[in-house]
Design a protein around this nucleic acid. Structure first.
Lengths: 237, 237
DNA sequence: TCCCGCCCGAGATTCGAAAATATATTGACA
DNA sequence: TGTCAATATATTTTCGAATCTCGGGCGGGA
């Protein structure tokens, strides 16, 4: 029709987006009937999309029982955080060592966009601003893009996606107030531009750690609560 | 019938094995008709299995054009090698820092199995011994299993799988003779048991590098040749 | 009353054919 | 004879129904 993007790709992208932005909650079951109605497609393409997400670790498959969004847990969050620190700082070292001027420029641009985008939308109650979320993702992606290894970049990106679930799923924390997120980003940018590996690593490590610590402090108990949420119908948009 | 392993899982495992062991060559196209005959299954489960492999980077998907085994290239091999060194040494550091006695014991066992398994089968011409290949994989897996981070272990394992394609695909090299592979493994084992991070890292790095260097030296030109191999029929079992 | 096995409904899995898209072939015209 | 358009063929993509499996409810026996 419009173009040659297969339906499977679109459904995959939609599903992925709905999981990453928290429209589908961790632990939630994903029956084919509901999903078929939600994305108006058949079982075959759903299985295909879900299989891909399983491989990414975003969805869990239990044979003969169906699929569900991967549940969150404190243990997984800790593992994910420490792995992200390992991989992202590794990527960062390579980026600082090998990144060229074009990379620096894209980084500066991404930082500027992020800096000028308000973090919270002016709704009642205040919610995460979608623009800020994507600017934030773009900034961190820009940092890591200086790394010459495609595989390493891909790994870092997938870990970052995984932790996006945690961020979104516990969006209304409040403890964010005590943090100077903008300052953290600026420190990271400056250290990178100065090609100061030590400082950059420290800044990135802190940035990642802080987010996890805030999550663990403010929501330690409901980390296991979302396992039996309502099925994925057409409504929750 | 026998059990509740879904057909999709079996086809996925078979396909994966056939790619990893080189029964399906890099670059080779994978038409549904041939695959359906080979694994005696329908298009749906094939798409599902192939999608998972795409997500792993073992298969490439071109919309409306079908699937093919991911081609090899010198550039990818270099990237893969350097990434493996980064990740596996990282994993190794964690393993040495956190691995317990049970881990040491499994490592010693795996080494012993590998040490007592002949590398080449006594056929004419000599081919890679399947038992050695799995013992080799098991040994390296055992090394990394001391790492407490499940995600990091999974990443390392997937990179190791990816490079298995290269190893298999260029199996008849001959330049292996000049290497003391057994010695390399022993050095790695000893350094790990001595909890000597420096030595262990060096041994692992060398081990990985040597393999790649041998490949690049002995087969630099046919790294781009397998792109139009014959389709995946039922015969080559 | 409690426990075991049978039956039934809900849902996942698999299939084979219809629809859509790309590639190869043919034939007409310059 | 060469090129382009139109047709025919091959292959992928999508669907909806048929098949199979799991879990729970029901009834009979201890």
């Amino acid at each position: 029709m419009a173009r040659s993007e297969t339906r499977a790709e679109r459904v995959y992208a939609n599903l992925r987006g709905d999981i990453l932005t928290g429209r589908l909650l961790p632990g939630q079951r994903l029956p084919f009937a509901d999903l078929g109605a939600r994305y108006s497609t058949s079982v075959g393409v759903l299985r295909e999309a879900l299989s891909r997400l399983v491989e990414q670790g975003l969805v869990l498959s239990e044979p003969q029982l169906g699929f569900r969004v991967t549940p969150v847990s404190e243990e997984d969050l800790r593992d994910l955080t420490s792995t992200r620190i390992d991989i992202e700082t590794l990527c960062l070292r390579h980026a600082i060592a090998h990144g060229d001027l074009a990379w620096e420029s894209r980084l500066v641009a991404a930082y500027h966009t992020l800096d000028r985008t308000p973090e919270l939308a002016s709704t009642q109650p205040p919610t995460v601003n979608e623009d800020w979320a994507s600017a934030h993702a773009a900034f961190h992606a820009a940092v890591l893009e200086g790394c010459p290894s495609r595989r390493l970049r891909d790994i870092a990106a997938s870990l970052r996606d995984a932790s996006e679930i945690y961020r979104r799923w516990s969006r209304h924390l409040g403890s964010e107030d005590t943090r100077d997120i903008a300052g953290e980003h600026q420190a990271l940018r400056d250290a990178v531009l100065a090609r100061d590996v030590e400082k950059a690593e420290a800044a990135l490590t802190q940035h990642i750690s802080y987010t996890t610590q805030a999550l663990l402090l403010s929501a330690p108990d409901n980390l296991m609560t979302a396992h039996d949420a309502e099925p994925a119908g057409t409504s929750p948009a």
